[in-house]
Write a protein that binds this DNA or RNA. Structure first.
Length: 419
DNA sequence: TCTGGGGTCCTAGGACCC
DNA sequence: TCTGGGGTCCTAGGACCC
């Protein structure tokens, strides 16, 4: 049994380079929605000291000083390249779990030598580069957490060139010493500080702890991490990417909103998006939360209001969620507040096949209608059919000052070759 | 001049009930 | 005079990930 984790190197920044070879040897930064924070920095940019996850305006000068190329998020492009990358991985190993837009786990039901795993990883890297032009790293390990660690090592530990294998216990210990504890999957900044205080600094230090004690002192999550680092599988194949227990759609506005109707439009939009995600995982929600807030950075005080709503029966009907959102609006809207962000969360989700239907269900929750809505939007584009309540005069468009073309998903943006 | 992402899960602690 | 359990639900906030 062997797991592999394949992930794209600085996915968004690399994606920007695919159809724009002129910028391949330049530092590239990709900004979050509304051009707020840096969310991807290519390796060249990182070497120049440009950091991820900082507000762009704070490093704008620094970026300009090194002639960095700046791009707004182009999710249409990233999503399309991602699916091509996943297709290539699936050709190599059909037992695949997509973990995020730039990562997937592969599971192999056999054992092989270290050399053969290395060869396979190398072949996979070449294949993805050849067919999609995305650079990927590949890590192999007997548990998902070890595969993650191997993937990290493949890019960061001296002596590896994009592929690493953590199989035998002895070899595993050698590499885990070279991985910082905060680079272990599931260990962030805060836990890192607490571990450091206990004298734990490397991934190996963590692996050497008693799992039971760590579980008591920290959490089950930490306990599972320790066990996985020792080769004990705690994240079952179905748990690597289980169905979500909650689903959110939220976004900050390009410009502040004070108008009640605009807030209603935005909440309606998020209700639509969240419901679509919910139906995609074949789930139903028992409750929902609606919220709107001003910015914590605004001078005149932080305002946030949330409203929870329980449904009589679990639902995935956009109409019911929108109606609930409109009810909630009266509670969360406050005149005079400059709203910065709002959103909808669907909570307490259950699988649609595990629902006890009641006598009135057919009239209450029209699954067929929603299925039809999704089918049309999948076939003809995602905004083909919308609820009228999203409005026709939306004023909350995202800021996207540095957007690249949607090379692969829009006819007018298809790259042209000049002869 | 102004600008600060989006999503998910876990846990501690409060409120309430018997 | 002092003492006082156990369970459930809800929520805010912590923590992590990409």
């Amino acid at each position: 049994m062997m797991y592999a984790l394949v992930d794209a190197v600085s996915m968004y920044a690399s994606a920007e380079k695919v159809f724009d070879p002129k910028i391949r040897d330049k530092p590239v930064l990709v900004l979050s929605n509304n051009d707020g924070c840096v969310i991807a920095a290519c390796p060249i940019a990182k070497r120049l000291g440009l950091k991820n996850f900082v507000p762009y305006f704070q490093i704008e000068k620094q970026a300009k000083a090194v002639n960095a190329v700046i791009r707004s998020s182009n999710y249409a492009l990233y999503a399309d390249l991602s699916s091509r990358m996943m297709d290539v991985c699936a050709q190599v190993c059909p037992d695949l779990h997509i973990y995020s837009i730039d990562e997937c786990f592969l599971k192999f039901d056999f054992n092989d030598s270290l050399e053969n795993w290395m060869r396979l990883g190398d072949a996979l890297r070449r294949k993805v580069w050849k067919e999609v032009r995305l650079p990927v790293g590949v890590g192999f390990g007997p548990t998902p957490t070890l595969a993650k660690a191997a993937n990290h090592a493949s890019k960061k530990v001296e002596g590896f060139n994009g592929v690493a294998v953590l199989d035998s216990a002895r070899y595993r210990r050698q590499i885990l010493t070279k991985i910082a504890i905060t680079d272990v999957w599931g260990v962030g900044k805060r836990l890192g500080v607490r571990f450091n205080k206990l004298g734990l600094h490397s991934a190996l230090d963590l692996a050497n702890q008693c799992p039971f004690k760590m579980g008591k002192q920290f959490s089950v999550v930490v306990e599972n991490t320790v066990r996985e680092l020792n080769g004990e599988i705690r994240l079952g194949w179905d748990d690597v990417r289980p169905d979500k227990k909650e689903l959110f759609s939220s976004r900050s506005f390009g410009e502040r909103i004070a108008d009640k109707a605009q807030l209603r439009h935005a909440l309606t939009m998020h209700a639509q998006i969240a419901c679509k995600k919910l139906r995609h995982q074949k789930g139903r929600a028992n409750s929902a939360v609606f919220f709107a807030a001003s910015s914590p950075h605004d001078a005149n005080g932080y305002y946030k209001e949330t409203l929870f709503k329980h449904f009589a029966r679990p639902t995935a009907d956009t109409r019911l969620i929108i109606a609930a959102a409109h009810d909630a609006l009266h509670t969360i809207y406050k005149p005079g507040v400059n709203f910065y962000k709002c959103g909808v969360g669907l909570l307490d989700l259950v699988d649609e096949t595990h629902i006890q239907e009641d006598l009135f269900s057919s009239s209450m929750d029209n699954t067929k209608l929603m299925g039809c809505l999704d089918a049309i939007n999948t076939k003809f584009g995602r905004s083909t059919l919308q609820f009228a309540a999203v409005g026709t005069d939306q004023k909350f468009h995202m800021k996207q000052a540095y957007l690249s073309p949607r090379y692969t998903t829009r006819w007018s943006d298809v790259p042209r070759i000049k002869c």
